[in-house]
Design a protein around this nucleic acid. Sequence first.
DNA 1: ATGAAAGCGCTAACAT
DNA 2: ATGTTAGCGCTTTCAT
Lengths: 348, 348
Amino acid sequence: MPATIYDIAKKASVGIGTVSRVLNNHPNVSLKTRERVLKVAHDLNYQPHAYAQGLARKKTNTIAAIIPYFTNYFFLEVLQGIQDKMLTLGYDIMLYGLNENDPEQFETYLLRATQKGRADGIMLFSLRLPDDFTMKYKHINQPFILVDCYHPDFDSITVDNKAGAYAATKHLIDLGHKRIGMINANPISPPAKIRFSGYKTALMESGLSFDEKIYKPSRILKYDGFSREAGYDSMIDMLELPKHELPTAIFVSSDVQAMGVLSAMRDHNLTAPDDIAIVGFDNIELAQHIGLSTISQPMYEMGVLSVGRMLDRLSNRNGSVTHTLFTPKLMVRETCGHYKKNTTMVNN
Amino acid sequence: MPATIYDIAKKASVGIGTVSRVLNNHPNVSLKTRERVLKVAHDLNYQPHAYAQGLARKKTNTIAAIIPYFTNYFFLEVLQGIQDKMLTLGYDIMLYGLNENDPEQFETYLLRATQKGRADGIMLFSLRLPDDFTMKYKHINQPFILVDCYHPDFDSITVDNKAGAYAATKHLIDLGHKRIGMINANPISPPAKIRFSGYKTALMESGLSFDEKIYKPSRILKYDGFSREAGYDSMIDMLELPKHELPTAIFVSSDVQAMGVLSAMRDHNLTAPDDIAIVGFDNIELAQHIGLSTISQPMYEMGVLSVGRMLDRLSNRNGSVTHTLFTPKLMVRETCGHYKKNTTMVNN
DNA sequence: ATGAAAGCGCTAACAT
DNA sequence: ATGTTAGCGCTTTCAT
């Protein structure tokens, strides 16, 4: 039913080659013919058949994105950056959303995404890659770009977790706190591990000692401890300490956990920052609503940049691998102190 | 580089027709040949070429989803439902995320999505369709399924906004409130309009009169007033009223707006439910964190169901159009009163 | 049961 | 400058 180049060719009394040339802006077509063909194409409301074009060009103009849903806000913003950029470049996005960090579903998606003629490249988000990943996928025909995760053998875009954790902790130190705890996710997760090291470094540099008693890695392992429940649990645990051993400030490894921490405090009739100051990490949308001080990642830009990296890779398969580190930004809001009523809450 | 059916055919000493038959489980292939071909295919790590297959079959096994990003949580959950279901059916999802309800970008996406050979069907989310939509797209070759939006000419899955608004308002009435206000989004938006009618109906049925003074449609029009800012602004406006004219309870047309409403209250040293009880709509993830009573939509199920509808449509293009209405559920939490400490906040 | 061949709609190399 | 032809990798019809 829809028009093909054959229909155009017939109507314009030319060969399909000429039609193709016109449509693809190739030189060597007389102005007269070009215009005639263009007119017919327009009249027929012609649209190229995506798959036919892809098959002939050996290019899909599609990229696959595999993203765990639990990354939530982060996911959405990065995706938005990607989408905006992709659109202007004529690429489409095939979305593979992971329900949990389920290795099996991940494999299934990977298999589909890497299927011949499915996508030109693949973007992986916030995923912990299995050890044999390089072996299995390094020599595949599609480039991989990692966003918010790292592997030495593939291009990656990440945020400087250490710098972020350092900044958060340092800010608390500058505020005058001497006893600063940390509630961490599961340190098996690379970001959790690195955020911990940033926390520790800041402590050391300022001559504060690290106290195991006020460092709580997550006991709840779902989502690697990056959950509200895990934060709640850790804080309840923390609050078992005798009063004089409690920290006066806590750096929490993610905002969702911080949500739980704040709930736990509320349940103990404690408030932030008056009783204990809190700084989170991620700057999820929620953080601004509740005045949570946190570390903000330039998510949208990361998305945009990752597209650039993908295109570079597409046109130069063998260039050397690059790793881009974004520096996150401290967002001072109320839970860390210095809260100014009527400004912080509403305007940022 | 990757193996094709020709490679298999040669190695297995058969014709490509036979290979194709084996791969597609057609009858009329001897067991012996079938096994031989299968083995070779496996040895060669054969994967069909998606586009070649699509071209030949005139089927892409892909569906396009056009979704405005601002729907946020709703978006994510519905998408998750869709994705899970799609995967089991061997369909892929092409994602077109809209940055705002921008008609131009929408057209662009629609054009891509409806491109020949791009997707078998198209799902539209939370989108207000232009008037000429039917004319332009009804007779296109791909079926449309509308989710969270309505148009008489296309299959749709929506939530019963009227019933939800009614339930919210009725609950406030049952709690003993006599003076119940509403903060609405922009009534130009169908859900806003319908939620308003549910609110009004509940009022009428209980013999309460509708008072213009405590009904505030949004003055801020971005996102049709479904935003935190709009809610904040409306509440500030509402609080101008002399004390005795203030409502004792307010039904807010969405949770994001309710966030703003609560902020505005906080800025006036008012709390919910003590000073004014609040019920929202949507049950976004945030709602549970802050104890916001609200109306919950079965988002995941809506996603799953929409896939079913799409497949029905794919196999029966001319069946009559169906509209499915999901009934939303009231989630009683603290902001409407009856808050029980240590249970509501943490456990649901 | 199976091989050969046509066709899906396009691009690109090859003629002229 | 333009028409013709050979793929792209697969499905499907037509012979045998």
